[in-house]
Design a binder for these strands. Structure first.
Lengths: 235, 235
DNA sequence: AAGTGGTCTAGACCACTGA
DNA sequence: CAGTGGTCTAGACCACTTG
């Protein structure tokens, strides 16, 4: 293929194939031309064609079946991406409180420790325009040799706290979104009526062996707004 | 590098580098050895090393800066993946109703059509163990030449409906998760008390020009359970 | 047996970054 | 300037699928 512009050859091939898929000329399940045929058609080599196909594969448009060929994928319209940043803009407007408590049965079970084990409890109230919109609770098992948590807690973003104990790529998070009534404790701190319905974000920080090393629960009042998620393909 | 097992060379290199990152020996922001140095160290070629690095890059562990080198990324602990399947298991237990209505102001605005335009409204109640757990509403602009929707509606999964009009890769979805009180209409159909708090999933089906071609609203009662999301890295 | 994708080699030229 | 990653070539051998 002639290089008429500064655009890499493989990107041109990628775009042509992608457009055929997006337009529906190549439907899910149908097979693509083979690497050799594409290489011949575009007057280039297999490796360059493979680069195009790998980009298509990563973008979710196609998959390969060794010995057979490349096929157009079924689009994953059920997979969403949700960005959840922890109160980055709310630093000043959030009030915090740190206490050391006994885990208790519920938290102890979640964290895989005894009910009488010591646990840091970190509480924040998130305000917006002078109104309390969320109530955040974090639970972290206490360990000897832990850095003075009170000092570090200024950066009470969850991943950062956990990162003090584990390398940052050594853990992952599971999140659940549910519905509850506001607890008395939270209602009191937010100065609103108890039993008010709220969305709840449950967060589990897990190490590589799926052991829970941190648990968070966050009440979101209606005024917090909606959580947003996206599904789709990069065009 | 000697091939002692059937494992590809690039996978071995990938795993070694990945383990160093996961263990924290290579921290976010630090630079990796250059392609040439890795090629020499593993007694292979640049192209093979590049394959390893590309896998690492796709997995989110590193990024490249042309002219400088490869660097360890900051882990994205704030990006979650949420799978939301539409009631696939509930086929038999869901009741449906299809009507054609005038869009009205709210729906008309969302769909970018006039308030008096015709719109299909598709309603389903989702049951589980004899109890209504969710109430689903979908709105789709009526168009001439549309296939008989009543017939197609047996497959009333949203992406499939939209696919009748557009190729399956030509649209994407935005979703929002919020909190509301149950509408009278929904409470009536589900035989529960009106004003009951529920989670709400708002879904917007958008074409490549961000025009809304379908809108959905789904009430989830507490008994529906929690939505689940994950963030993390493949090890 | 012929065709497919998966892996790998040993070069090449380019644009870019930093000393 | 030397070093880096980005692109590209023209081959090669392998395991797998299909007729």
């Amino acid at each position: 293929m002639k290089k008429t512009t500064g655009e890499p050859v493989y990107q041109g091939i990628y775009k042509e194939l992608r457009n055929q898929i997006v337009k529906g000329e190549l439907k899910p399940g149908s097979i693509l031309p083979s690497e050799n045929e594409l290489a011949a058609r575009y007057e280039t080599t297999r490796m360059t064609v493979r680069k195009s196909l790998q980009v298509l594969e990563h973008s979710g448009f196609i998959y390969s079946w060794p010995g057979k060929g490349y096929y157009v994928s079924e689009p994953k319209h059920h997979t969403f991406t949700l960005e959840f940043q922890e109160d980055e803009s709310a630093e000043q407007s959030s009030f915090r409180e740190i206490t050391m408590i006994r885990a208790g049965k519920e938290i102890g079970t979640l964290l895989g420790i005894g009910a009488s084990a010591r646990v840091w409890k970190i509480v924040r109230v998130i305000y917006q325009d002078g109104e309390a919109i969320a109530y955040d609770m974090k639970y972290i098992p206490y360990q000897k040799g832990m850095p003075t948590l009170e000092k570090e807690i200024n950066y009470a973003i969850f991943p950062d706290i956990v990162s003090n104990q584990l390398p940052p790529f050594a853990f992952h998070t599971k999140m659940e979104i549910g519905l509850e009534a506001l607890s008395e404790e939270a209602a009191l701190a937010m100065k609103c009526s108890t039993q008010e319905p709220v969305m709840v974000l449950y967060r589990y920080f897990l190490d590589d062996k799926e052991r829970c090393i941190g648990y968070g629960k966050k009440y979101l009042r209606k005024s917090y707004g909606r959580l947003k998620a996206q599904s789709g393909y990069l065009l």
